[in-house]
């Protein structure tokens, strides 16, 4: 259970992976919004990232953003090896659950869509 990641935590770690080193909270949030279309509250990002930091999956530091980015203080995150392993584990889990079920899922979706058409 110790390495289990929540749904939102997975999204954040993917975002961190995608944005590379030293992504700040705002970047992570935009990334998730862009790719999933979900509206994410900034507070939720920082809170979840704190939690991930508490579990040793990421590190954080507070820096002053360069003046062209408004000059305000930002919190930036970096993925730790433990975080990468946990994310990898989560992905493998999902994959092994989904394996061979593509057709079944498609037909189930067709049924669902067909049902709603009627």
């Amino acid at each position: 259970m110790r390495n289990h990641l929540g749904e939102f935590e997975k999204l954040l770690l993917f975002a961190l992976l995608a944005d590379g080193e030293d992504a700040d909270g705002a970047t992570l949030r935009q990334h998730i919004e862009l790719r999933t279309g979900r509206v994410v509250a900034p507070g939720a990002v920082y809170t979840a990232m704190d939690r991930l930091r508490g579990r040793g999956f990421v590190t954080s530091e507070v820096v002053n953003a360069p003046p062209e980015l408004g000059g305000r203080r930002q919190k930036r995150y970096r993925l730790r090896p433990e975080g990468a392993l946990a994310l990898d584990h989560a992905v493998r889990e999902m994959e092994s659950m989904a394996r061979g079920l593509d057709d079944a899922l498609s037909s189930a979706v067709e049924d669902a869509l067909g049902g709603s058409d009627r």
């Binding site: 509250a41 507070g43 939720a44 809170t47």
Partner: peptide, 20 residues
């Protein structure tokens, strides 16, 4: 978003990981 942030941050106030 501010209201949602407040909810997210409050709910996590006593999270043991954060707290510790």
């Amino acid at each position: 978003l501010a209201a949602a942030s407040r909810r997210a941050m409050r709910s996590d106030r006593w999270n043991p990981a954060v707290l510790s």
